[in-house]
Amino acid sequence: MNNEIVPIRDGYGKALLKLGVENENVIVLDADLSSSTRTNWFAEKFQQRFVDVGIAEQNMVGIAAGMSLNNKIPFVTTYGVFVCGRAFDQIRNTVCYSHLNVKIVGSHGGISVGPDGGSHQAIEDISLMRTLPNMTVVVPCDHIQAYKATLAIADHKGPVYLRLAREATKTITTEQDEFQLGKAQIITEGEDCVIFFAGTIGAEVVQATELLRKDKISPTVINLHTIKPLDTEVIIKYAKRFDKIFVVEEHLKIGGLGAAISQTLTEFYPRKIIHIGIDDRFGESGDPHVLLDAFGLSAARIMDKVLQSI
């Protein structure tokens, strides 16, 4: 970890600039949040290929669908809550059912959105998107991975949901790390347990791991940035190796990464998992770090949970 603190959205914004130069079919759409989602960087350079639809997410998904029918690669961008919730039917019936090449990018995932409160914190987006046939779901962990993930999904033909977050977070991957859709990334190999995670919560997991090492506990940490299709091979392999299996996610326990792993293990290698996520409730306002701690998702709380369980 190089400890550089950068919002994951920056990686997305930068990747769009690269795509703008390299692929004239890339179109970026936003619903009046372009400065917040970083699509304004693209908008300044490629005015003709940027579409601000105003505050109208359902229409935005439809416009993108239409453009994809004309060989465009549209990146629909807004907050995760708004696009996954409000435009769910459009994503389901138009984009996924028709198998269109539309990229849905939901920024502001998780409770670390902070002060805006529960209305703006997407905590069910992964659950909603992974239920849709034909959909790929990608949750990068930092700005470097978001950059690579954005380039990768542009190359992937078909609907994709890319989840981003608001808060600047520690960078835990490097430029050299390989990124491949559907392939888990091993962050650290340890002896005592395995921790699976996805998303910016990875910074807390990595920090928790460092704290645990002081207690002579060395976890294996695995980044499952692609939640669908899930790297079941890696999950089963490590479930066989370790007694204690932890899953950490900044998302409802219902339907997210933990649920996906649980489903996989139940079917192929039944094991108990220790799931650290958000219980059946909404988020609330507060400082992001205060919230992460309150919801049991800070490095310290993750460490506690691991210590209790081992």
Partner: peptide, 25 residues
Amino acid sequence: VEVSTGSLGQGLSIAAGIALSAKID
């Protein structure tokens, strides 16, 4: 059939998206 439909209210957005991209190209 250009695109799947059945859930009402979506065709005009799709058509507008095609029309806009046709203009761009």
